[in-house]
């Protein structure tokens, strides 16, 4: 009972309702904006890297020097193993340098992209490795060069799998944006921390949680639907 009295008093619920009415819509839009922008940049960097991880492999269609591949793998693993919250703090000076500010929507996109692109690279690598090797052999025997093999064969054949991967990326980045609220990023995470946690109003926290859950569900459902719809291996 104490718990409810402390975090869900009538006054707090009333405060929460005001916040929900006045600030939540803006915060949700802000979260979506940060998520989509971060995902976009993470894909712009992660997709080519993922392709290189596959084609540059010793058994790939265009093997790259061993040391280069080792460095690439090492950097990706390093960035992936760093907890996101630490990454943000470490990257603050860098962000400030790039954008002139380390807080707000823009300020959080830089660390998000840096945290997410290695993840996206691994997802892309996984999708491309699923490809039937006979298809690659067909491309090579048809006289396709590396570039053509990637763009006319590997990527088009991986579209459904890539859509699934990118859906995973968006939902994961959405989770990261909530965390970034703790260190000055905008959006629902910030609202939850500033209003919910610091003022001990768990009704606000709960409301932010519900919205995040709904967003994840919508994105995931849409992504799954799109992947299925795009997959021509399924009859009809």
């Amino acid at each position: 009972m104490d718990y409810f009295a402390r975090y869900f008093s009538e006054k707090k619920i009333a405060d929460a309702m005001v916040l929900i009415r006045e600030d939540f819509f803006q915060a949700t839009l802000s979260t979506l904006y940060i998520t989509l922008m971060s995902t976009l940049f993470a894909i712009l960097i992660g997709l080519p890297l993922g392709i290189i991880l596959v084609t540059g492999d010793a058994k790939g269609i265009r093997p790259l020097p061993r040391w280069l591949m080792s460095i690439l793998n090492w950097i990706i693993n390093l960035l992936r193993s760093a907890p996101f919250i630490i990454l943000i703090v470490l990257l603050m000076p860098f962000t400030r340098m790039m954008l002139g500010s380390a807080v707000g929507d823009g300020g959080v996109i830089v660390p998000l992209v840096i945290a997410a692109f290695p993840f996206v690279a691994r997802l892309v690598e996984g999708s491309l490795r699923e490809l039937n090797p006979n298809i690659i052999e067909m491309a090579q025997s048809s006289g396709a060069n590396t570039w053509q093999t990637v763009f006319h064969v590997m990527l088009p054949e991986s579209v459904p799998s890539l859509i699934t991967s990118f859906t995973t990326a968006i939902t994961t980045i959405l989770g990261y944006t909530a965390m970034s609220g703790a260190v000055g990023g905008g959006g629902l995470g910030n609202l939850a921390i500033a209003q919910g946690q610091q003022r001990s109003n768990h009704a606000v926290l709960l409301a932010a949680l519900v919205i995040l859950v709904i967003l994840v569900q919508i994105i995931q459902t849409f992504g799954t639907w799109l992947a299925r719809k795009s997959d021509k291996r399924l009859k009809n």
Binding site: N132, N134, I135, E137, M138, Q140, S141, S142, G143, V153, P156, E157, V159, P160, S230, D231, K232, R233
Partner: peptide, 17 residues
């Protein structure tokens, strides 16, 4: 390889095309 082309046991068509 445009002049010496190949067909395969498993056909190897692009399934998404």
């Amino acid at each position: 390889r445009h002049h010496v082309t190949m067909i395969f046991q498993s056909f190897n068509l692009l399934m998404q095309r």
